[in-house]
């Protein structure tokens, strides 16, 4: 399995490119666009651990992004604890929620699981909408003073960016380690045939739950960083169903179950979106065009960029993953 090290290194290289260019050029504009790209990459890789490795397609995965965002935000807002601690707490809390929810919804298969995850996201969104201390439908706003302890707003923005970069690298490496571990082999067995996996000795319930927890932890941390940087949070942007489907889209686009796939998928998706949004002709129709592209991919390249390359170019078959 060492041969797949190439894909990991390539993915790392890509991520470093997005971290280093804004840093070297000291460009806030590049930093902002890189921030979005890195966020997409981290989210796609996280989801892939559940969707690609384990075979459970969560349509409401953004719920963990939102939960992480709210926990981080509330901890900073009310208790003024340090950002790092808040992020870790947010990740752990989201993972615990995933364990709790997972123990019931992971018994559902296929489309029923998908619908249940949409339901969870909507339920939590509606709950948050009605919690006074989380600001209800309007959400919460930071007082600019909060950034003071991080060296002012400018520094805080850079800090968020670097934190996101680190998290993206960590989630990539974890995804690689899982894929090539005994645990990962168990997950893939579950993806292929859950009943067969259990008759081969895999503790399917435990494994699915752990995969769900890992794939919930990272979006929560990313959500925390995003809303810290954003300075405000509201239920609509924290629990947006569109973002959920975007995550699935990126994984599909790049290549489900692979290491490099979610990275390529996220970058490509980001580029498509950016191009559509700035182009005069397509700006107002970008949703329609995204829809058409998504449809074309689902119909004609369901195996994603990686799968397509592996199929077309023999040399890449054993290298790309």
């Amino acid at each position: 399995m060492k041969k797949n090290l190439f894909s990991l290194l390539l993915a790392l290289g890509i991520i470093f490119y997005f971290i280093l260019t804004p840093m070297i050029l000291n460009s806030p504009i590049l930093r902002e666009s890189s921030f979005t790209t890195l966020m997409y990459i981290a989210l796609a890789i996280s989801l892939n651990i559940l969707m690609g490795f384990t075979g459970y397609v969560s349509f409401g995965h953004v719920v963990f992004f939102g939960i992480g965002g709210y926990i981080t935000f509330a901890l900073l807002y009310y208790y003024k604890i340090s950002l790092f601690l808040a992020l870790i707490l947010a990740g752990i809390f989201a993972a615990l929620i995933a364990a709790l929810l997972g123990s019931v919804v992971l018994n559902l298969r296929g489309a029923y699981f998908a619908i249940a995850t949409i339901g969870i996201n909507e339920a939590i969104k509606s709950l948050v909408n009605n919690l006074e201390f989380l600001g209800g439908a309007e959400g919460l706003f930071f007082n600019m003073k909060i950034y003071k302890s991080y060296g002012g707003p400018q520094n805080a923005l850079w800090l968020s960016f670097y934190l996101l970069g680190i998290i993206t690298i960590v989630v990539l490496i974890i995804s690689y380690l899982i894929k090539h571990s005994k645990f990962g082999l168990g997950l893939f067995a579950i993806r292929e045939d859950e009943d067969a996996a259990s008759t081969l000795g895999v503790n399917t319930k435990l494994f699915k739950t752990i995969a769900f927890m890992i794939s919930a932890f990272f979006p929560a941390v990313v959500g925390g960083i995003f809303f810290f940087k954003n300075g405000s949070i509201d239920p609509g942007s924290a629990f947006s169903l569109t973002k959920s489907v975007e995550m699935i889209f990126m994984v599909m686009l790049g290549g489900i179950g692979t290491i490099l796939g979610p990275v390529l998928g996220a970058i490509t998706y980001d580029k498509i979106k950016e191009t559509l949004l700035v182009s005069e002709a397509f700006k107002n129709l970008h949703l329609t065009i995204s829809g058409i592209i998504l449809l074309l991919i689902v119909l004609f390249v369901p195996e994603g960029i990686i799968g397509f390359l592996r199929r077309k170019i023999k040399v890449l078959k054993n290298i790309l993953d």
């Binding site: 005994k182 082999l185 168990g186 045939d193 996996a197 081969l200």
Partner: peptide
Amino acid sequence: THQIVKPLKELSVLENVMVGACYGKANLSI
């Protein structure tokens, strides 16, 4: 073993057997 065979279709033959070795009584490392 299953009367109606249950291969893990998209994994290689080797990986299929490795699942048995990893998670059965053998409990081996990868």
